[in-house]
Amino acid sequence: MRFIVYIFIIFAFINYAYAANEPNAAVQKISLAVDHAPPYSQINQNGEVSGAIVDIFREMKKQLPFKLELVGCPFSRCVRMLEQGEVNAMGGLILTPMRQQVMQFVTPPYMVLTSSFVFYAREDSQLQINNYDDLYGKKIAIMRGAVHFKRFDEDDELTKIAVLTESTAINLLLKGRADLVIAVEDTADHAMSVLNQPANKLVKMQYRFNDTIYGYLALSKQFSVTPLAQRVDALMKTMAATGQLNTLIAPYELPPINEQALSF
């Protein structure tokens, strides 16, 4: 496996170096959609955008000739803009067959979490969710456009309340307008500390769905066929294989990309 990775690095580097030295290459713009999902991507009160995917693209800018436009938007709006080609790229997306039809995923993923989809309730609610069937009849706040696990996403008998942000979902829960919130355990626990959410007022339910969750960079279909997009794809692979990507995501407490992810 390690030999294959080294061979891959060589070919990716040759492809990237050839493209980067094309004569008279025009400096193009890449628009990157960023939703507010601290600490992995966030927009502060002054409208400044930051996060792991932003750091990755800023590093790419040092090696590829493009201007970077950061577009802050709610998650569902970001996804829709990517699908419609209104922005070129977005990070942190879970790959699904449906999404593959409308956007191009860049491999390998840069976020690899061995975590659980968990359900939060208010501490004073006395709710007990011990198995999947206990979810029926409960109002569950979800982030619009997000992907969770197959059974949950495809279950039309569940009562789901779609909102724009994870923070809004938690607020609905605290105000008693939702019974539960679904979230990725690792990212939710970290995000609540960053957002100063009152985690002490919430309790995790016993039922959870364990999974390995991969977060990808995705490109719009329109942008993905351009020479610049192909360079981004090649450079992303090289950064992952050489360990540079792990260095960039480390400050966000994301685990390093493993060999299994590299083989994608």
Rank of each mutant, 00 (worst) to 15 (best):
L70A: 10
L70K: 08
L70I: 13
L70R: 06
V71K: 07
V71Y: 04
V71H: 03
V71I: 15
C73F: 02
P74Q: 04
F75I: 08
S76I: 08
S76H: 11
R77H: 09
R77E: 08
R77Y: 08
C78M: 07
C78Q: 12
V79P: 01
V79A: 07
R80L: 13
R80C: 05
R80G: 09
R80K: 15
M81T: 09
L82C: 01
E83R: 11
E83C: 07
E83L: 09
Q84C: 07
Q84A: 13
G85D: 09
E86S: 13
E86N: 15
E86Y: 14
E86W: 15
V87R: 12
V87M: 14
V87L: 15
N88I: 02
N88S: 14
N88L: 01
N88Q: 15
M90S: 14
M90D: 11
G91P: 01
G92D: 00
G92N: 01
G92C: 01
G92W: 00
L93D: 02
I94V: 14
I94R: 14
I94A: 11
L95A: 10
L95Q: 11
L95F: 09
L95H: 08
L95M: 09
T96Y: 11
T96H: 12
P97M: 06
P97A: 06
M98A: 15
M98S: 15
R99P: 09
Q100I: 03
Q101H: 10
V102M: 08
V102H: 06
V102S: 11
V102P: 02
M103P: 00
M103K: 02
Q104T: 14
Q104G: 07
F105H: 02
V106H: 05
P109W: 01
P109V: 05
P109S: 13
Y110Q: 04
Y110S: 04
Y110A: 05
Y110V: 03
V112R: 00
V112L: 02
V112N: 02
L113T: 05
L113V: 06
T114L: 06
T114A: 10
T114G: 06
S115V: 00
S115F: 01
S115I: 00
S116C: 10
F117Y: 14
F119T: 00
Y120N: 10
A121Q: 12
A121V: 03
E123M: 09
E123T: 08
D124H: 12
D124C: 10
D124R: 10
D124Q: 11
S125Q: 05
S125F: 01
Q126H: 13
Q126K: 15
Q126Y: 09
L127W: 08
Q128P: 01
I129A: 02
N130S: 12
N131M: 06
N131L: 05
N131I: 06
N131K: 12
D133L: 11
L135Y: 06
L135H: 07
Y136S: 06
Y136E: 05
Y136W: 06
Y136P: 04
Y136T: 03
G137F: 03
G137D: 05
